[in-house]
Design a binder for these strands. Structure first.
Lengths: 338, 338
DNA sequence: TCGTAACAATGAAACGATTCAAAGAATTGA
DNA sequence: TCAATTCTTTGAATCGTTTCATTGTTACGA
């Protein structure tokens, strides 16, 4: 098996100097038409493909950007990844994707890997507290943008979604359609995202003197956990039932919906209106299409790349920016009968 | 901002030769304890991180493997990716992930990129017909393993799942629980996977003289499409209803389930048993937990990496292998009441 | 004490691309 | 025709690592 052709082989084959081949590839208009044709022919003959390692070595930097997400299976991140890839492609960069799976160890592994690869920068949705590690990186010239986590602006740029606003939107929508006895269903209120959503909901409720908000803690962020909560609600169907339910994510909401509709004692949205969060694909195809809060995933991914570019271009001192996006209300039949 | 430290800086700082630093990193036991300590200290002082581009350049090959999937959002691929990453990590390789999104253009883009990166090999779940392109790659020393597509063994190794067997399993299970008037629900029968599942189902049915199989074509592979099919079934609830339904994927099955249960005229599994395919996360948390066919995703990913390693080690002529896995039946309440 | 073997450390060469100063060729105007 | 100018091409130096033949050092038995 023959070694893959190098630029030197191409030069020999075409009868020119290596510098000329390089020029054909990088500055085509510095080269005469005649030689260009010859060189391109040689490239084709030999099946030459640039060796990226050599380019990088010489350039001192790669054309890749590292992106570490918590879970590639999560549609939220999948969408962010895709947007980031597209945005990066515009400036000729590629995205290296790492899935930490919520594990600090895997996260650390990817940071190491990306640092060895001399990535242009790092986008990360951190598992634990990696700010020290990231500080280090920055000192070594690897700028970092936090994704889906607001950052101390003196240290990092970040893109995130305003969960408080999202919570407000959801609760306010329930209130706007006339509901007053609201319930919030969420697991692990310690998670910042969940806590913020609850806080936003509380804010909305406080604007209506006659409204109340009950908090129901679920055992997890899953459909099953939602169904457990739903079952306990069914038992209260006569009277004590909330007339508006806001779930911290769509999975919980779907679970609650299943419990409520299965018994046919509670009608959605007549007896109780239901809204989720995330607007996953399944929301639209639920038994009763689920109202939800949609996060601007494309904008997140795109902006993260842009912030990184900003940081890269303004070498040296740079004002970090924390960009916070506002989520969007998606109304479906689980809150408003057509 | 100071340039990142190189191995030469480390050598100076520690007062040794560059070769020694390299030895500390790659062959620690060739180096005396004393120098090792000093070098490691220097590495720490300067925050030295190996430059992977230089390593690669010297080595002539990278320690990465390219993996191109059709859709990272698809849980099937997500699982394969994760398994491949883990398997690759065992031999010290990393996986570069590319999402073609079913687009030949993106696929081609990633192949180019990976070729420039001099990946050790390529795992690909191809969009279109890329065999020519892959032949080229192989000639240039980049072995390829096809994922989720059986390959002509004279040209490529491959890992795939026996969809015919899966179809047989599903239909046979319905027959085994006493159903005889079966229906197959699937979209785009032209897709090999779908066609094979149907064929397998037919095979099972042919083993029971008194059994029949009706084919219902859906408009897509989605919950909504399933619901449409389900609605048409509800209208036949008195008499003409199949007593066993096999859907080509879980989304369709969930849609069908929604339609059937919503009306409360059809009971699952009493009136009709329902089975899907893929065993997605949602299957277990459906209103009636869905029986399904599970594909051995971990084995797929792991084996793909192994086949690649085989091909890499046996340089030169190599017997390709097409490994075909057998899917597994997962029985839940949609086919068998506890 | 010496010779030998085992062990450590050295540093130049190589990997393949890009860069850039310098040389060479072609073109222009007088 | 010649000098000045512009356009092409050249090839050595460089990036940071690994490799390996060579040199230097230490330990040990005779």
């Amino acid at each position: 098996m023959s070694r893959t052709a190098s630029i030197k082989d191409v030069a020999n084959h075409a009868g020119v100097a290596v510098g000329t081949v390089s020029n054909v590839l990088n500055y085509p208009d510095r080269v005469s038409e005649r030689t260009k044709v010859r060189v391109l022919q040689a490239i084709d003959d030999l099946g030459f493909v640039r060796n990226d390692a050599a380019r990088q070595l010489r350039a001192g930097q790669s054309r890749t950007i590292g992106l570490i997400v918590l879970d590639v299976g999560n549609p939220f991140f999948t969408a962010v990844v895709r947007a980031a890839e597209d945005a990066a492609a515009l400036s000729g960069s590629a995205v290296l994707l790492g899935d930490s799976g919520h594990k600090a160890e895997r996260e650390s592994h990817y940071i190491d890997l990306f640092q060895e690869q001399r990535v242009q920068g790092l986008l990360i949705s951190p598992v634990g507290d990696v700010t020290e590690r990231l500080d280090q990186l920055r000192e070594r010239g690897v700028p970092t943008v936090l994704v889906d986590r607001r950052a101390d602006e003196t240290r990092f740029s970040s893109v995130s979604v305003d969960d408080d606003a999202g919570g407000y939107l959801a609760a306010r929508h329930l209130l706007d359609v006339g509901r007053r006895r609201l319930a919030f269903v969420g697991a692990s209120l310690a998670i910042r995202q969940v806590a913020d959503r609850l806080q936003g909901a509380r804010r909305a409720v406080s604007e209506f003197p006659d409204a109340s908000l009950e908090v129901l803690e679920a055992e997890g962020q899953t459909v099953l956990a939602g169904r457990t909560v739903g079952n306990s609600l069914v038992e209260r169907a006569d009277g004590g039932l909330p007339d508006g339910i806001f779930c911290a994510n769509d999975l919980l909401a779907l679970g609650v919906m299943q419990s409520l509709t299965m018994m046919h004692t509670v009608r959605i949205p007549e007896d109780t209106a239901l809204i989720g969060y995330d607007d996953i694909d399944f929301a639209v195809s639920a038994v009763v299409p689920l109202s939800s809060i949609r996060q601007p995933t494309e904008a997140l991914g795109r902006t993260a790349i842009e912030l990184l570019a900003e940081e890269n271009s303004s070498n040296g001192e740079h004002q970090h920016r924390a960009v916070v996006f506002t989520p969007e209300l998606v109304v479906r039949q689980s809150t408003v009968r057509d």
